[in-house]
Design a protein around this nucleic acid. Structure first.
Length: 787
DNA sequence: TCCGAATTAATTTTT
DNA sequence: TTAATTCGGA
């Protein structure tokens, strides 16, 4: 950020680009002799000094937004004497909340403990617990994440006997979530077509089941509070009273439901301050509505508007390139960032043959930068989708460069971690069906499919949770005696664990006993594979984090831990290791790095498919904003790369550089590498597939373990000099009905040689082949080769 | 009931 | 290509 106005102004001021852990001991108790607006530019000062009434701050990338928010809060408390607990500051991520709290702790002598700082979800969860009666929710509700939600929906679909192809669990869950995001309930679908009426029916059962389980999904956390305020004037009044000042960060990414919440909270006080940047709105697909910030002055005609357009982060060149792309958007508030920073070097555009060439070149570039004196932590690689990370990880491991991947399979989503947490969740709330069903036979303990089906039948019959059905299983005539025995053992096991909880043991101790008593740990240890070891490590880490939690948290209870964990994402877990950071552009929002590399600047990739000319133009505009976010993460140098050829699901695809590249001013770019377009139909050293040569060991390779300081891997094969001798082994998949024709002879690994009967469609084409002795088989063309 | 094999589905983006 | 789920045999 390097605000020239700040720098070495003495304690109490620090450069925002320096991670907090580097700042040294917090200056707790220190109050600047000057005012909270000192050292800020006039616009920033205006925003900070604003006291009462609505305020909207358009804060461009790197314009010192966080500084403004924290200083404003500090000003409210320190200068206007507002009680900290009457201020609510909502952020987008837990990490942002943590940073804000930390900075405020340094600015305020009284500390930041009493302030309400958190994400919408975390804040609402906390309020729902406090006002559970008024909002009609269970005090001990558990939070279901997307996977839990999907499991719940799937179970309902099966119970209803619906075709899961037509009613896709993800789609149904999406519909349910969308309706909540709009602030509406089941009624959203009741008047719809046949399909929507079925969704409404699923929705109703879903709500009922969730209630029986004492569970709330992410959407519920906000929806139930808003709904409670709508239906209960006492609750509305209590909350309006409680929060005298409300601040919302990243307001451009709020959805309608969040908008409603904020409106209701501030209706009385009107002390609402929203901060955001419509150019950085990148969550439309999740219901975010840029209108919220763009129309703020319509909602509040008396609002003060402040625009922060001075950027303290990037070079002039980087800003020009970013602006060139985003300014193509039609639907946007016109504005342009400017900076006093250096002109800087040109943006480097790297053309590559294929994705492996891209990885090798990018990593080579990183090595050069590191040699030139940059620290690993100063380098970030951004991509559009997680799937892109793999080749880069391989290249980085080969080069023995420490790296970390943010996102992807979230730590708390790993199977073994979820299993352990499921035990704890059932201990906390045995009616939690999804968790109970997850662990009832994990590790296997003789409770098979039939037993579970009978148990579920009994639960449905009685209209009770699975746990309650489990209690009554002994008198269920449908259950065999051996099944009853197994169920009894499981009951006893959970009884032991629940007793621990009742005795006031914390999550860590319960987890240890659970891993021990269930034999879960022993099963893994017996496996004795690299993957199992990694899983054991992960479990250790979870238990370790529980101990840490018990030691540090204000309230180290099981309930508190479970809540924290479900609302936690990987972005929140960026640590201090000196490693290169890999993440999606979405995950990078709000971060900054001296060096930023953005990979995969190709059509269909970035902009992603679905943003094409036939599609919703809004999609393309969002892709542009996404590119804008990516580029403006960079402080000093920006590298962009694309591959002319890429393997998508093992299928070779020819790619064109992204239209965004065309949109950039030529003179700002420095071109490197391959720029010619390859001709389809000729192999040109795309390299052979790895063919499961054991990279990283086990499914998902190194993804099982946390991504840090990986051992060296085998050399990525793009290092092998490529030449004409390399023929793409999957050539047959490039068929599209041209290469593969009915009547052709093909070979399959298992079925041997057969004759093509029919060529169907599908993304990898489906081909029907008659194999002598096997009959007619429909297969994905990838697994066939010409014979 | 359990395990390995076969099939098939999936690729944006996440609180 | 890979991960997840279903299938089929013991």
């Amino acid at each position: 950020m390097g605000n020239p106005l700040e720098g070495s102004r003495g304690p109490g001021y620090f450069n925002e680009s320096v991670p907090l852990s580097f700042v040294g001991p917090p200056h707790r108790g220190y109050l600047p002799a000057v005012s909270y607006t000192d050292g800020l530019n006039p616009r920033q000062q205006q925003a900070v000094a604003h006291f009462r009434g609505p305020l909207v701050v358009f804060a461009g990338a790197g314009s010192g937004k966080t500084r403004v928010i924290t200083h404003r809060v500090a000003q409210l408390v320190g200068e206007h004497g507002v009680a900290p607990w009457r201020i609510l500051a909502v952020t987008f991520t837990n990490k942002a909340a943590g940073e804000m709290r930390e900075r405020l702790a340094q600015l305020l002598p009284s500390g930041a403990d009493d302030l309400w700082v958190g994400t919408f979800h975390a804040v609402c969860a906390r309020l729902l617990r406090r006002y559970h009666e008024e909002a009609s929710v269970r005090r001990d509700f558990v939070i279901y994440d997307d996977a839990d939600q999907k499991a719940m929906v799937t179970r309902i679909l099966r119970d209803m006997g619906l075709d899961e192809r037509r009613y896709h669990p993800r789609m149904v869950a999406g519909a349910i979530n969308r309706s909540k995001q709009e602030g509406r309930g089941v009624d959203r679908f009741e008047a719809g077509d046949d399909f929507e009426r079925v969704v409404a029916e699923i929705f109703r059962i879903y709500d009922q089941r969730m209630q029986d389980c004492g569970a709330l999904d992410f959407g519920d956390l906000i929806f139930r509070l808003v709904d409670g305020m709508r239906n209960n004037p006492d609750l509305l009044s209590a909350l309006q009273d409680r929060f005298e000042y409300v601040l919302v960060d990243e307001y451009q990414d709020t959805n309608h439901l969040q908008y409603l919440l904020v409106q209701m909270l501030c209706e009385r006080s009107r002390n609402l301050c929203v901060v955001g940047d419509d150019d950085q709105s990148i969550y439309r697909w999740r219901g975010a509505d840029r209108r919220n910030i763009l129309d703020f002055t319509t909602h509040f005609p008396d609002a003060t508007m402040v625009k922060l357009e001075q950027n303290y982060r990037s070079t002039k060149r980087i800003l020009r390139v970013a602006h060139a792309v985003v300014s193509r958007n039609v639907d946007r508030e016109p504005k342009e960032l400017w900076t006093d920073n250096d002109e800087g070097p040109r943006v480097t555009l790297i053309g590559c043959r294929d994705e492996r060439d891209e990885a090798a070149t990018v990593v080579k570039g990183m090595e050069m930068l590191l040699e030139a004196g940059y620290a690993r932590r100063e380098v970030a690689l951004l991509y559009r989708t997680h799937a892109q990370s793999r080749v880069f990880e391989e290249a980085l491991r080969y080069s023995e460069l420490p790296y970390r991947v943010i996102g992807g399979v979230r730590f708390y989503d790993r199977a073994e971690v979820k299993d352990l947490l499921a035990y704890l969740r059932v201990v906390h709330n045995p009616d939690d069906d999804v968790s109970l069903l997850r662990i009832i036979n994990t590790p296997t303990r003789g409770i098979g499919k039939t037993t579970i089906t009978r148990l579920l039948d009994a639960a449905a019959r009685e209209g009770v949770s699975v746990w309650k059905a489990l209690q009554a299983a002994d008198s269920d005539a449908n259950q065999s005696s051996s099944a009853k025995k197994a169920l009894g053992r499981f009951r006893a096991l959970m009884g032991t664990l629940r007793e621990l909880a009742e005795q006031g043991e914390g999550p860590a101790r319960i987890a240890e006993v659970a891993l021990d008593e269930t034999g879960y740990l022993a099963v893994l240890q017996d496996e004795d594979t690299a993957e199992a070891d990694a899983r054991v490590d992960n479990l250790r880490e979870v238990v370790g984090s529980m101990f840490e939690f018990e030691r540090d948290a204000e309230e180290g209870t099981l309930a508190a831990f479970l809540e924290l964990v479900t609302l936690q994402t990987d972005v929140d877990r960026i640590d201090d290791d000196d490693a290169i950071t890999l993440m999606t552009v979405h995950a990078a929002k709000g971060l900054e790095f001296p060096i930023v590399m953005v990979a995969g600047l190709e059509e269909e990739m970035f902009p992603s498919r679905g943003a094409g000319p036939d599609d919703d133009p809004e999609e393309l505009e969002e892709e542009r904003r996404l590119a804008y976010v990516a580029f403006t993460r960079a402080e000093q140098r920006l590298f962009l790369s694309y591959a002319l050829t890429r393997r998508v699901y093992g299928e070779l695809k020819y790619r064109r550089p992204s239209r965004f590249v065309e949109e950039m001013p030529r003179e700002e770019l420095e071109l490197v590498g391959e720029t010619s377009t390859p001709r389809p139909g000729r192999s040109f050293g795309a390299g052979r597939s790895y063919g499961g040569s054991g990279y990283g060991g086990g499914p998902g390779g190194g993804r099982v373990a946390r991504q840090r300081f990986q051992p060296p891997a085998e050399p990525p094969e793009s290092r092998v000099p490529s030449g004409d001798s390399y023929v793409d082994s999957n050539e047959v998949s490039d068929v599209d009905g041209v290469v593969l024709r009915a009547g052709m002879r093909v070979r399959h690994k298992k079925f041997g040689i057969g004759e093509v009967y029919d060529v169907g469609d599908g993304i990898p084409p489906r081909v029907t082949v008659i194999f002598p002795g096997w009959g007619k088989k429909t297969l994905v063309s990838n697994y066939l080769e010409p014979a």
